[in-house]
Design a protein around this nucleic acid. Sequence first.
DNA 1: CTAGGACCTCGACGGGACTTGAGGTCAACG
DNA 2: CGTTGACCTCAAGTCCCGTCGAGGTCCTAG
Lengths: 149, 149
Amino acid sequence: MREDDGLSVGEVSARSGVAVSALHYYERRGLITSTRTVGNQRRYPRHVLRRLALLRVAQRLGLPLARVADAFATLPADRAPSRRDWERLSREWRADLDERIAALERLRDDVTGCIGCGCLSMRTCRVMNPADAAAGRGPGSSLLRGAED
Amino acid sequence: MREDDGLSVGEVSARSGVAVSALHYYERRGLITSTRTVGNQRRYPRHVLRRLALLRVAQRLGLPLARVADAFATLPADRAPSRRDWERLSREWRADLDERIAALERLRDDVTGCIGCGCLSMRTCRVMNPADAAAGRGPGSSLLRGAED
DNA sequence: CTAGGACCTCGACGGGACTTGAGGTCAACG
DNA sequence: CGTTGACCTCAAGTCCCGTCGAGGTCCTAG
């Protein structure tokens, strides 16, 4: 099997825990690249494992593959990402995460303030009437103006 | 149009801000119900608006419709959900949200602790090797054991 | 009587991230 | 020589949450 150097899909799959089908998919999406043997089999450079590790982190963070692809486009293609690369990406991704956490916290606070409140009148409640809709007053703002039921 | 009482889809859509197609969809999914006029048109009880308000909240919280359906199954079918109902659901949903926030915070802390760390050795790093994989040591645990590249 | 608007059903499409399956190739082993 | 086993491609399917369109019905107004 070692006709060439580089890892086969099967090896990469075993070592990374990523399914072969997913590797094919990532390659189609341009997230990883491979060369081919004379028999048309993929051979991956070892640092593909590093990329896959980054990819897994990004996914745990909830980032879409498109965003990961953007990030990967800034990495050197021919060698493993360096510590500085990882540092840069992780900072960037963490900022993203921070934002999402903050948004969820705001939402939680709204809900908390709303538990057992007079929400059933559903006019002033911030949970029922999200901030973004509170700006204008055209159709779409007080969406629930029939809801006093 | 007022052949029967109850709201038509168009009215519900206008008052709730939910597209007609979505109302049809929710009905197929069993989230809301309607009666029909002799001409086979839907008529909704007014408290459907209350349900839709709850539904919107749940969606803002990021809950899947299946979970909303479960919750709705615990609501009275024939009348509007009471304040106690709303209180119960909002508490439940908030707990869910709290959990997700906590998980994201743990993740953020891991990433923060990892920025610029020796992650490139990728063995002990908590971001690279999620907690749930740290338990066993069979295939699947130290997934990146080939990653020292 | 006819045009319009609101409604009906059913089936297909979109995007994200894959998986599954069918059908075929390549290389080594006995 | 034949049979594994790992690999290949391409198309289609899955899940979620709807949206869109075609083709048809119903009711009311002009």
